[in-house]
């Protein structure tokens, strides 16, 4: 539908929408996060859900204690290698459609503990992260910003066609391989489906 015509109709008090938009509107305003925190970022996440920052404005205040009822995973904090299998398994247990926000420097890269032998260098090695938030820890405003970015992402997802999201495609599996906590490292060290090591190319300008 022509955007101009739609705007004009809207000014006349006629609301026009599509099934797809209605569906996405409902989904983006009822994201239910999984209630779990891994480290200090979780405190900021809790603060975000409280009255001062009020995550409820975005329909996401219902932190679920069970992955069966949640569709958003906020990885808030340092993911140790011992914890990573559990995080991936929880993600697998969540119902589709599901999204991941990697909150804070640790969750996106290992952060200040990146050199640690026991720290996973970013949860995006195993899970398809939708929004990364930098910061140590990010302030609640940053989490809200990530929420809004995720909402925009959901609003733009198409219901049919080649580029429809994963949860609408029967051929794409909803589970990701759970790494095994081995003697020296997680096995495998990353999931090549979702992550590949960034290629350094020398001689090219930044």
């Amino acid at each position: 539908m022509d955007e101009q015509l739609r705007h004009e109709l809207g000014r006349q008090g006629i609301f026009v929408t599509t099934l797809e938009e209605l569906y996405n509107w409902g989904r983006k305003n009822s994201l239910w996060p999984l209630g779990f925190g891994l480290a200090c970022c979780a405190i900021e996440m809790i603060a975000t859900s409280m009255a001062r920052f009020d995550l409820a404005r975005f329909g996401a205040e219902v932190f679920r204690p069970s992955p069966r009822q949640a569709d958003l995973m906020i990885v808030a904090g340092t993911v140790t290698k011992k914890m990573a299998p559990q995080v991936v398994r929880l993600y697998n247990q969540m119902a589709e459609p599901k999204y991941v926000i990697a909150m804070g420097a640790c969750a996106i890269s290992g952060g200040p503990f990146k050199q640690g032998y026991n720290v996973l260098k970013g949860i995006d090695r195993y899970l398809p992260v939708d929004v990364h938030i930098p910061g140590c820890p990010p302030r609640p405003e940053a989490l809200l910003d990530a929420f809004m970015a995720l909402q925009q992402k959901i609003a733009q997802q198409s219901l049919t066609g080649e580029h429809r999201p994963r949860h609408l495609r029967a051929d794409v599996p909803g589970e990701f391989p759970v790494p095994v906590f081995g003697a020296h490292d997680l096995q495998p060290p990353s999931n090549p489906q979702v992550w590949s090591a960034p290629q350094m190319r020398r001689g090219e300008g930044a």
């Binding site: 398994r89 929880l90 697998n92 119902a95 459609p97 219901l159």
Partner: peptide, 20 residues
């Protein structure tokens, strides 16, 4: 019509705290 069910070993397991 739209949303295919995707059962799996992890998803169908009984325990919900991340541990097996």
């Amino acid at each position: 019509v739209f949303s295919p069910a995707k059962p799996g070993l992890d998803k169908n397991s009984i325990y919900e705290c991340g541990l097996e």
